[in-house]
Simulated assay, not measured.
Amino acid sequence: MALETKRLPEADIRAILRAADELIAVGGRTLLAKILKGSREKKVLQLELDDCPVYGYFKGVKLDDVVEKIDWMLDYGFLDIEYSGKLPMIIFTERGWEIERDQMADELLQEWDDWLEAEKRSPDMHYLKDRNRGMILLLLDKVKETDNEKYIPYLKEWKKMDYKKVRAVIRETVQALKSDEPVDLNAARGRNASVQKALRGFEPQDL
């Protein structure tokens, strides 16, 4: 493992977690490293892992050094290993998922911003169905916290095709965006503080 590896910067931690999100419980350290390295290996391309936003993030780094960074993530409690038979698969720890869930919600919201800027109307929202429920509810919280009615058309499209519980939260989000009530950002501040704490990884005394 890589306990002696220099502490990774926040951007690297986030990039590794984002790449890991593409293969949780279906791939191991080496495949994760190949995404981050930008490998053109057949398996990477077959699984369309080259579509990952952080594909090639460590393009100029040796593969063994990328694996060492992943080992650091394992050592400091961002990722873990779960065996499928004899095959070791990468999974998130609670700490790692807290960070990734937050940045994935941000990524989805940014995608909406890009679509709105491109005047994309009535997008197919089926891609949000059956996603992790906690992440979806967080996305809706973030939409609500923007206090911006520009998202309402997308929310209405989404509401047409999702499950009853999600539809109810979408309806509440639309109502909040239409309301003149000031936005309470205390939850957002608490959430951001928690994510920043998670980004520190294990404290030395925990190791």
Rank of each mutant, 00 (worst) to 15 (best):
M73N: 01
V54A: 03
D51H: 09
M89H: 12
D64S: 13
I81F: 05
L87W: 12
P53M: 11
F92P: 06
K62N: 11
I90G: 05
Y57G: 09
K59W: 12
L79W: 06
V61A: 02
K62I: 10
M89S: 02
E68S: 14
L49H: 07
E82L: 06
E98D: 14
Y76M: 08
M89D: 01
I91R: 15
K43Y: 11
K62S: 08
V67D: 06
D80R: 10
F78R: 03
M73W: 05
G77V: 03
D51W: 03
Y55F: 15
V66R: 00
L79T: 09
P53Q: 08
D75I: 00
G56Q: 00
E82K: 14
I91K: 15
M73P: 03
I81N: 05
E94V: 10
K62G: 11
I90S: 02
E48T: 08
M73D: 05
L47F: 09
G77Q: 05
K59S: 13
K62V: 12
Y83P: 02
E94C: 00
M73H: 00
D71E: 14
P88F: 08
S84E: 13
E82P: 01
E98Y: 06
K86A: 08
D50S: 11
R95W: 10
G60K: 14
E82I: 10
W72E: 04
V54L: 04
D51P: 01
V66F: 02
Y76F: 14
L63S: 07
Y55N: 11
L79P: 03
L87D: 09
K69M: 15
F92Q: 01
Y57K: 08
L74A: 07
L79Y: 09
V54N: 02
F92N: 04
K62C: 01
F92C: 04
F92K: 04
E94R: 14
S84K: 10
F92G: 01
M73Y: 06
G96D: 10
E68C: 04
K86T: 13
W97D: 04
E94Q: 14
F58G: 06
